[in-house]
Amino acid sequence: MIMNNLNIMIVGVGGQGTLLASRILGTVGIKKSYDVKVSEVHGMSQRGGSVVTYVKMGEKVYSPLIEKGEADIIMAFEQLEALRWIDYLKDNGNLITNEQKINPMPVITGKAEYPKGIIEKLKENYKGTVSLDALNIAKQCGNTKAVNLVLIGVLAKRTDIEKEVWLEAIKETVPAKFLDVNIKAFEAGYEVS
């Protein structure tokens, strides 16, 4: 799957572990000798806000941002966020989305409604969509915070980068005391069809 350039977007809600996911992807890119650029969001927007991280790899990458319609893969940690950023996906791109719903404040206070049928609609429009209950899988692996590794497992299976490279990158990036649960979560994601 990896060709001249690979553009990946990671979208979700601040606090869901999107930063660690982007670091793992970036490290995998370096291991495969690609030039890598990652753009993250820190600070205020991280407090439960909508967050987006860009990961780009290729021969030579200058800009850390991805423009609309140019993402090969979008990895979404939450349904509404998957929909919010979907215009960035290439027509034949892959969407990997967690089925979890996290209500934003306007929905909680009743000012807005959470859109219905998001996953169905996305699957209809993008053939390469995979959806899964990553929160539940992470929970079964022993830690709800391992959602990011479940999703990375799903993504890893859909690239032609060797599994060993992913595992090495995870070992280098994840804090040692959480390594076991994270590897377990990655393996579980890797098995998702």
């Binding site: 927007s45 407090r47 439960g48 919010r84 979907i86 934003p104 859109p115």
Partner: peptide, 17 residues
């Protein structure tokens, strides 16, 4: 013109945890 298929969605501003 760039792709523009997403309807108006509920915003997700940062909040106290």
């Amino acid at each position: 013109k760039e792709k523009n298929t997403v309807p108006d969605l509920p915003v997700r501003p940062p909040v106290l945890c």
